[in-house]
Amino acid sequence: MSLKTLQVTWLGEQRYVGVSESGHQLLIDNSATKIGVSPMEALLGALATCTAYDVVQVMGKKRIKLTSYRIEVEGERADEHPRRYTRIVVRHIARGEGLTPEALERAAHLSHEKYCSVAASLNSEVVVETRVEAEAAASV
């Protein structure tokens, strides 16, 4: 089993920066003056990039040379809290030498059903533990 970590720090308002264990940053912003993606947009982005990685790998193994590839993802959210996604549509749009609709369909299916860890996490019961550490503010 492998462990991944991400440290998220509040920047003020509803703006946060996440820093991965490799030092890469992710700006999450749900403030009125957005300069980053919202948490729910980040979730869609994680799903899209996870499956894109798999599809590109599968195409390479099949010796299909992609000349362009993008994913359009849309999520429908529940009206009531916690306003989770109730439906996500992932549209794979690709062009390439020797590419057929069947090959793209197979690669996308393999990703969503077998390889994409984000899709697997969304499709399962994930145990989330909450732990807290309250620190008293320093007196001035």
Results as ranks from 00 to 15, higher is better:
residue 2 S to W: 02
residue 3 L to N: 10
residue 4 K to N: 10
residue 6 L to S: 14
residue 6 L to M: 10
residue 8 V to L: 15
residue 9 T to R: 04
residue 9 T to Q: 11
residue 11 L to F: 03
residue 12 G to S: 06
residue 14 Q to A: 04
residue 15 R to M: 12
residue 15 R to G: 00
residue 16 Y to I: 06
residue 16 Y to G: 00
residue 16 Y to A: 07
residue 17 V to H: 01
residue 17 V to A: 09
residue 18 G to M: 07
residue 18 G to H: 08
residue 19 V to H: 00
residue 20 S to I: 01
residue 20 S to K: 02
residue 21 E to A: 13
residue 22 S to W: 01
residue 22 S to M: 09
residue 23 G to N: 01
residue 24 H to Y: 04
residue 24 H to V: 01
residue 24 H to F: 04
residue 24 H to Q: 13
residue 25 Q to R: 04
residue 26 L to A: 10
residue 27 L to F: 08
residue 28 I to N: 04
residue 29 D to E: 09
residue 29 D to C: 04
residue 29 D to P: 04
residue 30 N to I: 12
residue 31 S to T: 08
residue 37 V to E: 07
residue 37 V to Q: 07
residue 37 V to C: 06
residue 39 P to W: 12
residue 41 E to T: 09
residue 41 E to V: 06
residue 41 E to Y: 02
residue 42 A to I: 04
residue 42 A to G: 11
residue 42 A to F: 07
residue 43 L to Y: 10
residue 44 L to K: 08
residue 45 G to F: 15
residue 46 A to E: 03
residue 46 A to N: 03
residue 48 A to R: 00
residue 48 A to D: 04
residue 48 A to L: 05
residue 49 T to F: 06
residue 49 T to P: 00
residue 51 T to C: 00
residue 52 A to E: 00
residue 54 D to L: 05
residue 54 D to N: 07
residue 55 V to P: 04
residue 57 Q to V: 15
residue 57 Q to M: 15
residue 58 V to K: 02
residue 60 G to F: 12
residue 61 K to D: 14
residue 63 R to V: 04
residue 65 K to A: 13
residue 67 T to A: 12
residue 68 S to D: 15
residue 69 Y to M: 11
residue 70 R to K: 12
residue 71 I to W: 10
residue 72 E to T: 14
residue 73 V to R: 07
residue 73 V to N: 07
residue 75 G to S: 07
residue 75 G to R: 03
residue 77 R to Y: 01
residue 79 D to C: 11
residue 81 H to S: 13
residue 83 R to P: 03
residue 83 R to M: 15
residue 85 Y to S: 11
residue 85 Y to G: 14
residue 86 T to L: 13
residue 87 R to P: 02
residue 87 R to H: 15
residue 88 I to Q: 08
residue 88 I to P: 03
residue 90 V to L: 15
residue 90 V to T: 12
residue 92 H to R: 12
residue 93 I to K: 02
residue 93 I to H: 07
residue 94 A to R: 02
residue 95 R to F: 04
residue 95 R to W: 04
residue 96 G to Y: 11
residue 97 E to P: 08
residue 97 E to A: 13
residue 97 E to G: 05
residue 98 G to V: 08
residue 99 L to G: 11
residue 99 L to C: 14
residue 99 L to S: 10
residue 100 T to G: 10
residue 102 E to Y: 07
residue 102 E to W: 03
residue 103 A to Q: 12
residue 103 A to Y: 09
residue 105 E to I: 10
residue 105 E to V: 14
residue 106 R to I: 00
residue 111 S to K: 01
residue 112 H to F: 05
residue 112 H to P: 05
residue 113 E to A: 13
residue 114 K to A: 10
residue 114 K to P: 02
residue 114 K to W: 00
residue 115 Y to G: 02
residue 116 C to Y: 01
residue 120 A to V: 02
residue 121 S to L: 14
residue 122 L to Q: 07
residue 122 L to H: 03
residue 123 N to R: 11
residue 125 E to R: 10
residue 125 E to D: 11
residue 125 E to L: 06
residue 126 V to N: 09
residue 127 V to N: 14
residue 128 V to T: 11
residue 131 R to G: 05
residue 131 R to I: 11
residue 132 V to S: 13
residue 134 A to D: 06
residue 134 A to H: 10
residue 135 E to H: 15
residue 136 A to I: 08
residue 136 A to L: 11
residue 136 A to Y: 09
residue 137 A to M: 10
residue 138 A to E: 13
residue 139 S to T: 06
residue 139 S to H: 01
residue 139 S to M: 01
residue 140 V to S: 12
residue 140 V to Q: 03
